[in-house]
Nucleic acid binder design. Structure first.
Length: 470
RNA sequence: GGCCCGUUCGUCUAUCGGUUAGGACACCAGGUUUUCAACCUGGUAAGAGGGGUUCGACUCCCCUACGGGCUGCCA
């Protein structure tokens, strides 16, 4: 096997300030697909340098979301905060190289600077630190930040796989702070150092970072490090085209699990949001791994469409392996904080799957369709179903019941018995099916009566029919 | 305000200068059917607007409009 190409390394780097939202999940999926599909590594880094907003609960929620989606990462999740000494060392290295400088300006100084600029007519001004070229002899005994000594003329060009060549004029960029006055690193520094140290070759992330890529490029250059391949993907918007927020309802991946969407369906749907491979719409994760590539990523933001998500999920439930479906149903119930199925119910559900799995788009729907199998006597008919159980129907059911005693309980055997029962009363089969449905399930919408009888079995069928005739 | 990015059916998208602009979801109609689904067949529906370049633009360039992002000692 020829291995001339260096191994691909991608990463997902969420900040633990909340749950894993759907946009982050897609970013993680793209990184995962790209790395896993090419024998590369997919790493996870928690960007927890903001101590005020980062919480262990959020980290746990993110890991949980990724696990549910089946996006496994290589090695341990890296805590960015724990690497702060390394980041600080790099900041000082930059100082030594002359690509960074100590800045003694305070937050008040900066605010005053901006106010003065605005008063002078500028609508907005990037801060120009007076300490950039100051004589070290003039340095006060005071806290300082370390700022990047960014070039003020010329341009920085980002070669982005998705966005193409993006040129930013350097006068747009300020001397960003890389080390805060409390000696903790900022994101701009930490992200570059970590990506470099972790050997990340491809940075696939939201295009809200596109401008940041220019500033980060300067850090790479200042340190003489190789710049990774950039791939800035468009954000996901809500159904109304606005930036995704809580206002749009479910934005946390945990919500989707609790609502009963299968993980495979989520992966499929999310993969198609902003990425396409010809007309491929429905595919397994294995197929996605083979097809996925950066070239298929689009440049415009996508909106969430729950109908399509449902449709996609329906296909995945219908095509899922029964054992996996059973297991994921249990996972759904736990996530939704619902009581688990009893062992008997699980067995019945397993037997019912063949006639309900291609009718359900979500797990609650699957359970609803399998209600006839999961419920137990007494069967209480809902109002609409009760109408079908009139005196005449009950009479027919009563005649029918003894004949079922000797049936061999296959569809082939049952069919003539039911057909004949209907015919002997001059009824089309449909007229008999309605009361049967009512007696067996208590509902008007169910799987076929034959399927229900086969699933619940001979004894239970006869018991339900008898009960309905009392 | 400045800078950056984007704009094909309602939605997700295909198209990499020459197509009756294709597919999927949704929707509508029909079929199948013991109900509900599922399924099958068909249909409605799109290049934001304006200028160029070109024999020929959805595709390349410019302007406008609209949407989004960045502009923090947040990430």
């Amino acid at each position: 096997m020829l291995q001339t190409q260096a191994q691909i390394v991608t990463r997902f780097a969420p900040s633990p300030t909340g749950y894993l939202h759907i946009g982050g999940a897609r970013t993680a999926l793209f990184n995962w697909l790209f790395a896993r599909g090419r024998g590369g590594k997919f790493l996870l880094r928690i960007e927890d340098t903001d101590r005020e907003r980062s919480t262990p609960e959020a980290t746990e929620a993110i890991l949980k979301g990724l696990r549910w989606l089946g996006l496994d990462w290589d090695g341990e999740a890296v805590s960015q905060f724990e690497r702060k000494d390394r980041h600080a060392a790099v900041a000082h290295d930059m100082l030594a190289r002359g690509t960074a400088y100590k800045c003694f300006s305070t937050a008040e100084d900066i605010a005053a600077y901006r106010a003065a600029q605005e008063a002078a007519g500028a609508s907005y001004a990037v801060f120009r630190s007076p300490w950039r070229d100051a004589d070290p002899a003039s340095f006060p005994e005071a806290p300082y930040t370390i700022r990047m000594k960014a070039p003020r003329v010329g341009q920085t060009i980002i070669s982005d796989t998705v966005q193409g060549k993006v040129t930013i004029n350097n006068d747009q960029l300020d001397d960003m702070i890389v080390l805060r006055s409390d000696h903790t690193p900022t994101y701009m520094l930490a992200v570059v150092v970590d990506d470099h140290d972790m050997g990340v070759t491809h940075v696939i992330r939201g295009d809200d970072h596109l401008n940041n890529a220019a500033r980060q490029t300067m850090v790479y250059q200042a340190m003489g490090w190789d710049i990774p391949v950039w791939a800035h993907i468009p954000l996901i918007h809500g159904p109304d085209g606005k930036k995704l927020s809580k206002r749009h309802g479910a934005t946390a991946v945990g919500d989707y699990q609790a609502q009963g969407y299968p993980a495979a369906g989520m992966r499929n749907y999310l993969a198609r949001l902003g990425w396409a491979h010809g007309d491929a719409e429905l595919f397994t994760t294995g197929q996605a791994l083979e097809m996925f590539g950066l070239a298929g990523i689009g440049r415009s933001p996508a909106r969430l469409d729950f109908k399509k998500l449902e449709s996609t999920c329906g296909w995945h439930i219908a095509h899922a392996d029964d054992a996996a479906l059973l297991q994921e149903t249990a996972g759904y119930l736990a996530a939704a904080d619902l009581p688990p199925l009893t062992e008997a119910q699980s067995t019945l559900l397993a037997r019912a799957l063949y006639c309900v799995k291609d009718r359900a788009k979500t797990f609650p729907e699957l359970l609803e369709k399998a209600h006839f199998a999961l419920t137990s006597r007494p069967i209480v008919a809902d109002p609409a179903a009760a109408l079908a159980l009139d005196a005449v129907s009950r009479g027919i059911l009563m005649e029918l019941t003894p004949r079922l005693q000797n049936a061999s309980w296959t569809k082939e055997d049952l069919e003539p018995i039911l057909k004949e029962a209907a015919a002997s009363h001059g009824l089309v089969f449909g007229k008999l099916a309605a009361p049967l449905r009512s007696a067996l399930a208590g509902r008007t919408a169910t799987p076929s009566v034959y399927d229900m009888m086969l699933v619940i079995g001979q004894d239970e069928t006869i018991a339900r029919l008898s009960a309905a005739c009392d």
